[in-house]
Design a protein around this nucleic acid. Structure first.
Length: 405
DNA sequence: TCTGGGGTCCTAGGACCC
DNA sequence: TCTGGGGTCCTAGGACCC
């Protein structure tokens, strides 16, 4: 049976949400109507554009531009800081409203949802629902969304990306040729900046070109990705709306350092702070990790990473930081100049499953209790207030405000 | 004061086993 | 004296997404 899918995409999410919040707090101006961006902090060397207003877009500003570039393109641009706590709040309000339409919602990202509306079989009914969602979000929540309507997720997502803002678009099978095939391949979901030039060299410029290209040639040249892009170009996507909450497959935190670091001792302090952060999040999910991974980025943007599989899954801060330090020492050699340090854990398993099948040892139990005491304090008084005694506060380097869910 | 941070999935090569 | 070959696990790196 054919599915009925909606894709709901918030227009300029971070900027719109900031605008709504500012208006609520009595602001005179609506930053959606002026050249404005949400940007990182240049003094912390995280100066990139996270979101832009339509007027900023007209200046040629793109997401992920540096703030520096944005100022060149549009002198006088207004810049506002990001605030993920607020984004979460508005994202939740959207999700709640959409939940009135179906339980089968997949939260694809903080500002995008897929809805499986297969219960609305009549095309007119489905379209009416799409328009109703579009209108009610605007009226009740104060920001706008695009809604894409189609028979699968890929086409719904492509549709919501057509003209913006505050629009409803359809992309049914019979519309693929006229609405999607003329678009440049760069518009196709999953075609990024590495693949697009390669396709250009093969004289494949539009999504239509790709749709008509030889599938086997693409397979040979791009592997699985080649098959995927050919299917997407032809509007083929049989994936389901994953409406059930999924456990994370990995958890990581990384930090671009305010200043480059050349001393391994300092890197170790950062690693410790990251380990506290990552293992805290891991324990919040009641999960254990089997793999620890450390990433370094040099001043020249060269990335390296080392990882290690553990003999036993763990969520202990001490254990994770111990492994991470080993990995760091493997990777680091003088005279490296480090810009970014990252720590992530992968191969996660649920704690319950492990504990049933393993003898727990005394030492682990003690460590677990210690971690729990610290976690409870952090949950009660806020993450930043509580740090391990002894060390200088490596957390000072880290931007910890966003990690609490 | 140029280039974030959090994810998922895939690939290729080496080790190891039968 | 001509070096199989398939399968799995692990690691490092890369591509893509928002």
């Amino acid at each position: 049976m054919e599915k009925q899918i909606l894709h709901v995409d918030v227009n300029n999410a971070f900027l719109s949400w900031t605008a709504v919040e500012m208006l609520k707090n009595g602001a005179e101006i609506d930053i959606r109507n002026i050249p404005a961006i949400i940007g990182g902090d240049e003094t912390k060397r995280s100066g990139i554009v996270l979101a832009k207003s339509m007027k900023a877009k007209e200046c040629g500003i793109r997401t992920a531009d540096t703030i520096y570039q944005a100022k060149l393109k549009c002198p006088g641009i207004k810049i506002y800081p990001s605030n993920f706590k607020i984004y979460r709040k508005y994202s939740d309000s959207l999700f709640k409203l959409l939940s009135e339409y179906t339980d089968k919602i997949e939260r694809f990202s903080i500002d995008e949802c897929f809805l499986d509306m297969t219960e609305y079989l009549m095309k007119d009914t489905l379209l009416n629902k799409a328009y109703e969602i579009n209108r009610r979000v605007r009226e009740k929540l104060g920001f706008t969304v695009n809604v894409g309507v189609a028979h699968n997720k890929l086409l719904a997502k492509m549709a919501s990306d057509f003209t913006k803002p505050d629009k409803v678009h359809t992309l049914f099978k019979e519309e693929i040729e006229t609405k999607m095939w003329p678009l440049p391949i760069s518009e196709l979901f999953m075609l990024g900046k590495k693949t697009v030039p390669k396709l250009y060299n093969m004289q494949i410029r539009t999504i239509g070109d790709l749709a008509k290209a030889n599938k086997e040639v693409l397979h040979k040249k791009f592997g699985k990705h080649g098959i995927l892009m050919w299917e997407y170009a032809n509007g083929i996507d049989n994936s389901e709306v994953h409406f059930e909450k999924e456990k994370p497959k990995g958890i990581g935190n990384s930090i671009t350092l305010p200043e480059n670091i050349t001393e391994i001792e300092k890197l170790e302090e950062i690693i410790l702070a990251l380990a506290e952060q990552v293992s805290f999040r891991l324990r919040k999910y009641d999960m254990l990790a089997k793999t620890v991974n450390v990433q370094l980025r040099t001043k020249d943007f060269e990335d390296t990473s080392h990882q290690k599989k553990l003999p036993e899954a763990t969520s202990s801060t001490k254990e994770i930081s111990r492994i991470a330090k080993e990995l760091l020492n493997e990777m680091f050699h003088k005279p490296m100049v480090i810009r970014l340090v990252g720590l992530r854990v992968d191969n996660l398993v649920e704690k319950e499953q492990i504990q049933l099948s393993l003898f727990s040892n005394r030492n682990n139990e003690k460590q677990e209790k210690l971690d729990k005491v610290v976690d409870d304090l952090k949950n009660k008084y806020g993450y930043n207030k509580i740090t391990r005694a002894g060390k200088m506060n490596a957390g000072d380097y880290l931007n910890l405000k966003d990690i609490k869910k």
